[in-house]
Design a protein around this nucleic acid. Sequence first.
DNA 1: CTGTTAGCGCCTTCAG
DNA 2: CTGAAGGCGCTAACAG
Lengths: 333, 333
Amino acid sequence: MQREAPTLAHVARLAAVSENTVSRVIRNKGPIAEETRKRVIEAIDSLGYVPNRAAGALASSSSLIIGVLLPSLSNIVFPEVLRGIHAALADTPYQAMIGVTDYDLLQEQKLLGSLLAWQPAAIVTTGFDHTDASRRMLEQSGIRIAELMDIDDRPIDIAVGLSHRGAGRESARHLVARGYRRIGYVGHDWSADRRAHFRYEGFRQGLQEAGLSPAAEFRFEGASSTMAGREALAQLLGRGGDVDAVVFSNDDMAVGGFMHCLGAGLAIPERLALFGFNGLDIGQALPRPLSTIRSNRFLIGRTAAEKLLEARERPAEPQIIDTGFEIVEGATA
Amino acid sequence: MQREAPTLAHVARLAAVSENTVSRVIRNKGPIAEETRKRVIEAIDSLGYVPNRAAGALASSSSLIIGVLLPSLSNIVFPEVLRGIHAALADTPYQAMIGVTDYDLLQEQKLLGSLLAWQPAAIVTTGFDHTDASRRMLEQSGIRIAELMDIDDRPIDIAVGLSHRGAGRESARHLVARGYRRIGYVGHDWSADRRAHFRYEGFRQGLQEAGLSPAAEFRFEGASSTMAGREALAQLLGRGGDVDAVVFSNDDMAVGGFMHCLGAGLAIPERLALFGFNGLDIGQALPRPLSTIRSNRFLIGRTAAEKLLEARERPAEPQIIDTGFEIVEGATA
DNA sequence: CTGTTAGCGCCTTCAG
DNA sequence: CTGAAGGCGCTAACAG
């Protein structure tokens, strides 16, 4: 079988108009007589015509691709951002093309190069840290750029996310307000995950406002995970540090901490209060829902994609969109 | 700034060869004198030339895109498959273009259309269920097709995954072998998730081999989640059914069940044994690691992408690649 | 081993 | 409101 796919020319012939007119109808561009439009649409339907995107991209030197660079897919956080992006693109002709950087700026640079080779309409990436070469490519491409997750710096075009410093600060304030004074910190390796580091800094700052400093700290070498959180809390407590609350670098770690307490028979929050970050479902399904901060990942992705499609030109001034965060009271702190 | 991006012609001029020769060097195609190749590579580097993929796709009527259709991004299972795909594509010029179907076959059909408009080198999709139109598009496209996750049917080209019926059967056998006799089932809505349904059928079959049938069943209306599992188990037990073990439709549900037992003070596995499916990290980080079946999602994604790139032509006979599954003993059953 | 010649299918520009 | 002409950047087929 495998008939040649119909092209603009076929549609044009069938509708007895020029290719150009068909093209205009498809792109909803320029004035078209209602009569003509109807004829063209019929021809398209009857042939089952599907425009060849590669040809369109070549001719217009701009494609219907949105390049998306994510640091990881292992953590549910980024798939949720991606889900938001897809939700915004669902009823548009745009398609997301994904790259995974593994939190590696050189990898980001390489992937950025291959994405730009498709002449995408826009690029979505994460954070403000880029190699000089990446930054140059992003700036000179002229296309819309969104930098996601964080908003505590100056974006190239737009930034969509929340203040991680602010979130860290709020977690400290929340615990202090509830009477905790010997507050520890359990985190994962943050050489790659800068935002976890920012939250930590905010956390220290929040404690300082109350004249406190971390009662104990433990940082796990490696990526965050439930298992890591479990082991890390065991380590922290094993050192005999006297803490009445622990802030974790994120919910994965905090859920692990919860598991440790269950195993070790530590009453939560009487003996030890736990506080996370992200507001994942799993935290809310614990026997006691986790006290944490909701980070609105889906919203970040959706907002970014919507904003990028709103205008083809970058705004005169870089723009910051704060998707905010909320304390989730829970029952562990 | 924003100099015009260099094209093949620029490189060709600088290296004093024809465009065609440059193209050959880039694509590693046809014989090239080592001398010439070196000159071309130098020119490419010095200009920072990046090939325009849209032009390449148009000229060759085939792009370096792998279209990937996933049912969902909410469940960590599919991001892990995607991670496997990306791992296999990482050192190739291929890029994944994603579509999310929300378990909707019509949505799959629509997305398939837009993906094919890019003339991708291959399509990765999920399961064997497609609309007639989708199936026609897949078959007639002539490109390589991988159908992931399940292997209990005849694929269009290749299938990569595991036997969900087999996995369901093994979970029943495992529990029977350990002496459980009053075995219940807790699942999520499977009108969309056919594979969960297949596991359930296998489970029943496994019980039947021992002359048993499910002691109680409860199906939650909606997608699987930890919270759903927690509530569903509460419902099942609330009915006063007398069960000594429960098989869940997946680990998310099973972890929720674990949480219910914790809250209700039911000893695991003495009072109630729990069994999941997938082998997620979270299950292994519980105070007692979850007894479950590992489904090798990453491997499925990676194997599929590798196989697709091995040959441009479909094999004479549809091929099935069984990535298997393993019982994870755990401590909850 | 390398060059020449024609497009790929669409969009942009300019006329009408 | 519609059409004609040209070209986007690359690759395929053939020639040498």
